[in-house]
Structures are given as structure tokens and as C-alpha cells.
Simulated assay, not measured.
Amino acid sequence: MALSISAALLLGIVVFVLLKGGYVRVGPALACSLFGFTLAATGLAPAINTGLASFAGLISSL
């Protein structure tokens, strides 16, 4: 059975677990989230999306 999940949802779950576990505080998590939003608005966003798609393809082929 194939499971499809968006990268945003998966990373959101990871951040939530790290916050609840006490590994990451709210301030650094917020800073990283804001950095991600600003990074998505740059010219580097297509390369990042291509890299994530390639990684997802690699994982799905295993």
C-alpha cells in the first residue's frame, strides 16, 4: 500500500515532536520556519523543490 504525504505536513509533524520533546524551543523553531518562508520566495526555491522531488523519488523506489 502506497502512502502519500506532503513534505510540509511531514516536516510540521517533525517540528511538533521536537517541540514537545524539548529538543527545540519555540524561538528557534519559529526562526527556522520564517527562514523557510523567505527562502521559498527566492530564486533558489525551484532547485530546492527539484531536490526534494528527487529525494522523494529515491525513497519511493526503495
Rank of each mutant, 00 (worst) to 15 (best):
M1W: 06
M1K: 11
A2Y: 01
A2M: 05
A2H: 07
A2P: 13
L3K: 11
L3E: 14
L3W: 06
S4V: 13
S4K: 10
S4Y: 11
S4F: 11
S4L: 12
I5R: 11
S6I: 01
A7W: 14
A7C: 02
A7M: 08
A8E: 14
A8V: 08
A8C: 01
L9S: 12
L10T: 10
L11E: 11
L11W: 08
L11A: 11
G12R: 06
I13C: 03
I13M: 11
I13V: 14
V14R: 09
V14K: 07
V14P: 00
V14S: 03
V15L: 14
V15S: 05
F16W: 06
F16H: 04
V17L: 15
V17K: 06
V17T: 12
V17I: 15
V17P: 01
V17C: 07
L18C: 11
L18Y: 03
L18Q: 14
L18N: 10
L19K: 09
L19G: 04
L19C: 05
G21R: 13
G21T: 07
G22C: 05
G22I: 06
G22W: 07
Y23W: 13
V24P: 00
V24R: 12
V26W: 15
V26Q: 05
V26R: 13
G27T: 12
G27Y: 04
G27R: 13
P28I: 05
P28V: 04
A29T: 07
A29L: 04
L30T: 12
L30A: 15
L30F: 13
C32N: 05
C32L: 15
S33A: 14
S33Y: 15
S33G: 15
L34I: 13
L34S: 03
L34N: 00
F35M: 12
F35K: 00
G36R: 03
G36A: 08
F37R: 02
F37Q: 04
F37P: 00
T38L: 15
T38E: 10
T38K: 02
A40F: 09
A40Q: 07
A40P: 03
A40L: 07
A40M: 10
A41V: 08
A41S: 08
T42P: 03
T42I: 02
G43N: 08
G43D: 11
L44W: 10
L44F: 10
L44I: 13
A45W: 12
P46W: 03
P46G: 04
P46K: 02
P46I: 02
P46H: 04
A47P: 00
A47W: 04
I48T: 06
I48F: 13
N49Q: 09
N49V: 09
N49C: 09
N49D: 14
T50E: 08
T50P: 00
T50R: 09
T50V: 04
G51A: 15
G51C: 02
G51T: 06
S54N: 10
S54M: 09
S54G: 05
S54W: 07
S54E: 10
F55I: 09
F55R: 03
F55N: 01
A56V: 05
A56Q: 07
A56H: 02
G57S: 13
L58Q: 05
L58K: 05
L58D: 03
I59S: 02
I59W: 08
S61Q: 12
S61R: 11
L62C: 02
L62W: 07
